[in-house]
Simulated scan of single mutants.
Amino acid sequence: MARETSGVMLGSIELFCAAAELESFTAAATQAGITPAAVSRAIGRLEERLAVPLFVRSTRRMRLTDAGRAYHAQCRQALAQIVEAERELTGRQAEAAGLIRVSAPTTFGHSVLLPLLPAFRRRYPKVSIEVQVSNRNVDFTEDSFDLAIRARTPPDSGLVARQLLDAELVVAGAPSYLRKAGKPKTLQDLAAHECIQFLLPRTGQKVPWEFRDDGRDVQVETDGHYTVTDDVLATLTLARAGAGLVQTHRYLMEQDLADGTLVEVLQRFGGRSRPFSLLYTGTRHMPLRVRLFIDFLVEQSQRLQLEGLGALTRRRR
């Protein structure tokens, strides 16, 4: 029987799948522990072999061609079958064990990550999990973390980023505050309101409020006499007490909106969201327990996104 593939080509297919899923040759290279040029050459050899372009490349972005999307779906399935075959032969899946250290912000940690952990340990009972719930950006090398979840990816981190959830932003205030100050009807009205501020841990700068105005994404610099550091959930506590308006993720305040503790305002300027991403160093020889945990978080986050993030709040209460 003629040999139709090779170890070199199989490696190129793995790099192609990584580049397709991460939408970046650089991220795929970081994950594989090689240079972006090596990824480009490998995919170039693959395109030459197939005689079709797999990616449309530009200076600003990279995307799959129609042929690339079809090929990726088949390759992903084939690679998954190979991994499963190896696990059945070697029993590696049953050997997932050891400690996973993960850092998550307070919002995602309390509402999403922590409630999911028991289900993961039911699958892999030999795995232990240490969670740092903090908005501080961790140093993967010095702090020895395997994974971090953040609402913002450090621009020069060199880390692999996998999006987990895209969480809608809303503005709300307590009825007692709105009776006193009135409801803002335009973005300009925010200048006359107490807007509860949150400072970014890394920069110490105020987080700008984000809106969509006539189809355009806009940021508004707001001000107020209350400033919160470290814990975003504290801004909600202040808002419930009537201190002013707050902008945060809808899923965090959905129960407050449903029972009238908070009232949403400026709905016609809504539609903005902020993604939560899973960050890791992407070392080539990643421990099985960490790889399985990444797959689990991505799978569960996609399910939650489809169900609607408000289900999280309803299940907790």
Rank of each mutant, 00 (worst) to 15 (best):
Q267C: 04
R315W: 02
A311Y: 02
A172D: 01
V160H: 12
A94H: 03
Q197D: 03
V39M: 03
L10E: 15
G91W: 02
R87G: 14
G271N: 01
A174H: 02
A38F: 05
Q205P: 03
D189I: 09
S111G: 04
F145G: 02
A181H: 03
W209Q: 07
N137F: 10
L252M: 07
G158K: 05
D295E: 15
G91Y: 08
V290W: 07
F55G: 07
G109H: 08
L199Y: 03
V52W: 07
Q267Y: 00
E299F: 03
L190S: 08
T186G: 12
V290C: 11
M253L: 12
R291A: 15
V133L: 09
G270R: 00
E307L: 14
A80K: 10
S301N: 07
G242A: 12
D231M: 06
L169I: 06
A148S: 14
A51N: 10
P125S: 12
A174T: 04
A96I: 06
V218K: 01
T26G: 09
R212H: 02
Q305T: 12
S40M: 02
R284C: 04
E23L: 14
V265H: 00
D223A: 13
Q302P: 00
M253A: 10
A97S: 14
T283D: 11
D66M: 15
L278M: 04
Q163C: 10
V207S: 08
D231P: 00
P125F: 11
E194Q: 13
E307K: 13
N137L: 15
L252F: 00
A96K: 09
L164Q: 08
F120V: 04
T30I: 07
G158Q: 14
V127R: 04
S103L: 06
L200M: 13
Y177F: 04
V171R: 10
G109N: 10
S176E: 13
I100D: 04
R240S: 10
A94R: 06
I129S: 01
